[in-house]
């Protein structure tokens, strides 16, 4: 009854506040769309110079997908390279090929090298080499960067915005004195926390559904598993963010201090949640990952979206996310003791 009154009030407030509503739903969509455009842009076409390549070799090279310039001497090519006209050049000295790269942008380096390997394939084939057959257990050679990062970023941005909005609105309850008023009524502390979870929970459900639908059907994120599981995971991520946000707002005195939690709580999760390969993080830091809720969310989302796994592969992650939420709720109830002992 009292919880119902509380969550109806929260719903009314969110609906009134159009901007916050938009931030909850459209901001993640906007950010994900931008990432999609950045990651899934067209392949880079390298500018490559060919220096004194013998004619018989050149006729066999596969020169597609690049801008080729021809140079007589290495000196001329080097000049073009330092002027920024070339990304690298291929040089034949005494029939031995070598490559010089401009080298300042790793992704350009990689695409030049990839191109050179492709271009020289016809040369190698003639010398009795079988092309390797590659099979993919998960994904395919079509799997782009966005497909791999997508699930992690989906979880991340949902977490980010829910954390911020739930945290700030609970904080406002404190700063305007309404929390005090709530606690001078017979409302129980757990009822306050539950009211927030349910009130925001309803919006979170709508938000999770819209964002998940958009990512998969509009942005065409890779999706091998079931939509329902993805929805369930996003929902639990949001719940964790909601409970953590409201909990941490107890330790902020104003909105700016709430923002200060972003570099402390939100950004580290980006690095340790598995967006980047955790195996390459120094040993003395990699233990942090398992303490981050998003670590489990990313794992579960990838398992469903890329690997197409079902319940038995994600149940543990979901359980841990639920446990995080329960823990944060409990701590929040304890934090409210600051205002009223009972």
């Amino acid at each position: 009854m009292r919880v119902t009154a509380l969550f109806i009030r929260i719903l009314r407030q969110i609906v009134r506040d159009k901007r916050t509503l938009a931030l909850l739903i459209f901001a993640p969509i906007l950010v994900l769309s931008m990432l999609y455009l950045v990651f899934d842009g067209e392949d880079y076409i390298p500018n490559v110079g060919l220096v004194a390549v013998p004619d018989p070799v050149q006729s066999q090279l596969d020169l597609e997908n690049s801008n080729i310039e021809y140079y007589e001497t290495e000196k001329a090519a080097k000049k073009a390279l330092s002027a920024g006209k070339l990304d690298g050049y291929l040089l034949f000295e005494n029939q031995v090929p070598s490559v010089v790269l401009e080298g300042s942008d790793p992704s350009v380096n990689a695409s030049v090298m990839k191109w050179i390997q492709e271009a020289m394939k016809p040369l190698q084939k003639s010398s009795l080499q079988q092309e390797l057959d590659i099979d993919y257990v998960f994904g395919s050679d079509e799997l782009g960067q966005f497909d791999y990062y997508g699930p992690a970023l989906l979880g991340y941005f949902v977490f980010f915005f829910v954390f911020l909005i739930a945290g700030v609105s609970f904080l406002r309850e404190r700063t305007t004195g309404t929390l005090e008023r709530l606690l001078s009524s017979p409302l129980r502390k757990w009822e306050i926390v539950m009211g927030y979870v349910i009130g925001f929970g309803i919006f979170i459900m709508i938000q999770a559904a819209i964002i998940t639908w958009y990512s998969i059907y509009v942005l065409d994120m890779v999706m091998e598993g079931s939509f329902g599981f993805v929805l369930l995971i996003t929902l639990l991520v949001s719940l964790t963010a909601l409970t953590l946000g409201t909990l941490l707002s107890a330790y902020a005195n104003n909105e700016l201090q709430m923002i200060q939690f972003i570099p402390l709580v939100i950004v580290p999760q980006l690095f340790f949640s598995g967006l980047f390969n955790l195996d390459t993080i120094s040993d003395w830091l990699s233990w942090i990952g398992p303490f981050m809720p998003l670590y489990y969310a990313t794992e579960a989302l990838r398992n469903v979206m890329i690997r197409g796994y079902g319940w038995d592969m994600i149940d543990q992650d979901l359980l841990i996310l639920a446990a995080f939420s329960a823990l944060f709720m409990l701590l929040n109830i304890l934090a409210l003791r600051k205002y009223r002992k009972i």
Binding site: T4, A5, S184, S185
Partner: peptide, 29 residues
């Protein structure tokens, strides 16, 4: 606590809501 009516120095109102909605909420509590 149920038998006490308390009014703090700060107004402690939900400004996004109408007066009726504020009253409705607190009376339900």
């Amino acid at each position: 606590i149920e038998r006490i009516g308390y009014m703090a120095q700060s107004d402690a109102l939900y400004t996004e809501l109408t007066a009726r909605e504020n009253l409705d909420f607190f009376s339900s509590l």
